[in-house]
Design a binder for these strands. Sequence first.
DNA 1: TTTAGTTAGTTAGACGAACTAGTTAGGTGG
DNA 2: CCACCTAACTAGTTCGTCTAACTAACTAAA
Lengths: 174, 174
Amino acid sequence: MTTADPLVNRSEYWYPESKDRAIGVLNALRAYRSAEVAMRKRTRDSMGMGETDLTAIRYLLEAERRGHAVTAKDLARRLEVSSASVTALIDRLVESDHVRRDPHPTDRRSVVIVPTHDTDTEVRDTLGRMHEVMMERAEALSPDEARVVERFLREMANALDEVPVEPTGSSTLH
Amino acid sequence: MTTADPLVNRSEYWYPESKDRAIGVLNALRAYRSAEVAMRKRTRDSMGMGETDLTAIRYLLEAERRGHAVTAKDLARRLEVSSASVTALIDRLVESDHVRRDPHPTDRRSVVIVPTHDTDTEVRDTLGRMHEVMMERAEALSPDEARVVERFLREMANALDEVPVEPTGSSTLH
DNA sequence: TTTAGTTAGTTAGACGAACTAGTTAGGTGG
DNA sequence: CCACCTAACTAGTTCGTCTAACTAACTAAA
């Protein structure tokens, strides 16, 4: 579907144009990704926890913001880890004073996991300014620009989604 | 996933004002990120290895493409893990037939890590089509659009880079 | 050339975070 | 009432990382 890159003149002059632009865009996308990875690592390090723990914290804060209660089971589902791992995870976060275990109001088997106020502050301090800047930049886009950017990002996401899980066949080495 | 159909205007609001637009864009960015994370997870699962191993493989293939030799030390530096971990990592990849240990041409202490041909094929099979689609979409952008997208992504990356490394002070808890 | 110091990689042992399997306590429906 | 289900926890294992110590090889200075 692409380009066909026909035998025309593919030598020196031509394919820079559109291809160089495309490469620039994809490089920017890669730069974004790697900035994101680096940021997450810094955050993890500064909060002294692993990826899963931090994801859990984010989820808990988000849920709290919306007024939703979160049980251990919810966490397990969301993080895609076993209930045993969630127990251990919550132990760690309780130990470090990031969350509390509250009794579930109606189901006495359940526990409701609530982030402490300090956690909220800590994360806001860490990520609040960043979100501000991002929102500000996004708001600075004209309607047309916003449309272009959003469409592009969704196309990229779709491209990623389409990657066949496909166990390759060749990965079955003995 | 996916929120609103961007095509239809939602009942009450006219059309997104600047904030709604911004939120849409940032949501698309988030969707992209989460598609990327999911893709990586699928790839890891299908190749039966962890994140670090896969990153190593990517690095090795990239280096090979550019004709650069890679030593264990290079891997340690790039992956930011200890030399001991690299030894274990290479052991795993050798075991699974993804890489070879070759003697360094001049330094007999060193080993040069080389991806096998099968590895190259495997990764190309898995990710080649995806890259094609992404490139195709990126090439479809007009010069103006490409400029807008690239600038936006770089602004986002900068916002992430600016996150203070050491916030909080409240991370010293116990 | 010998020797002292450095570097590349490995080995050994510990630890943390995930897993599976099984337990306990509480809820639910015939 | 009973059998089954469900939420969370416990026990024990695996896996990937780490640090520390070691070996072999390179480098440089006396």
